[in-house]
Amino acid sequence: MSALAPARPDARALRWLPRLNKRFLIDYMAWVLLLALALIGVATNGSLFASGSNLNNIVEQSVIIGLLAIGQFVVILTGGIDLSVGSAMALTAMVVGVSMPLGTPGAVLMAVLTGTLVGLASGLTVVYGGLPPFIVTFAMMAVARGLALTITSGKSVQVLDNSLLGLGFGWQKVAVWALAIAVVWFILTRTRTGVRVYAVGGNVEAARVSGISTPRVIVLVYVISGLCAATAGILSFARNGGVAVPTSGQGYEMETIAAVVLGGVNLLGGEGRFVGAIAGTVFVVMLRNILDLSNADAFWSFCVIGVVLWGAVMLRGALERMR
């Protein structure tokens, strides 16, 4: 039987060889672009860009966007989108700040609870309200931001002396990101749930007739995104030296979407490699880094990221149409 497993190298097998190439290009588009961008970085800023401390910076700065991009990636796999990632992060950071008096474990628990609730609210509304994810999470973006601002009437929270601070720096921060990557990678590639996430995004109807509870899968991905936002919130609180800023994370939905699209995810759902989203994240952060090193106007970077997002979608579409 196992002799049957590899398809015979007949005409049929040869015919999808170019398609494999296309798939390959989409999956690894972000890595190629990342390499190209690094070369541009070296060319424009030379040793300044390639210095150990700068590269270290890039990795560290990737952590927050990277965490949010994980959630964004999983949601987009089901054909949805999560616009609330940035404000959910700000909200959980604020929750950590104000609940510090409960002690560090209590504050972390509160943040996790907040992230879960945000994800549940979005997911349940998408499933049972029958509303488009774009609108639901757009509303959630406003709700979470509003709550973040309301908690302290718009002021930042400072808890300078707390045991979370260590998490915000150096390898600890990167380790948290790596752990999150490992957990989600495991779920997506090694569990039933992972296959079902891809199935729901690929063909909801087929998933339903196969007996999969599609509502459960959809709610789950928003909860994963909420938990990623909570983790990002905790880290951002720690990184700022124990300061939670209610206006933080604005525009992050853009950057995370740009990151995962660069990473080759199909915005209609059903396909995308997780590693691509990581490369996409580093690309977006490196791009901002190079603009900073080049003393580009900070306002320009928004525009540039928008152009990159647009270009990434175009490039992916072109690759998809390629034969």
Binding site: R196, Y198, G202, A206, A207, V209, G270, E271
Partner: peptide, 20 residues
């Protein structure tokens, strides 16, 4: 047919009742 084009043959066959 109700298949998920992005998944493999094996994943489609066991969709909803994947062995663990």
């Amino acid at each position: 047919l109700n298949l998920v084009p992005q998944l493999t043959v094996a994943e489609n066959i066991f969709l909803g009742s994947e062995p663990r």
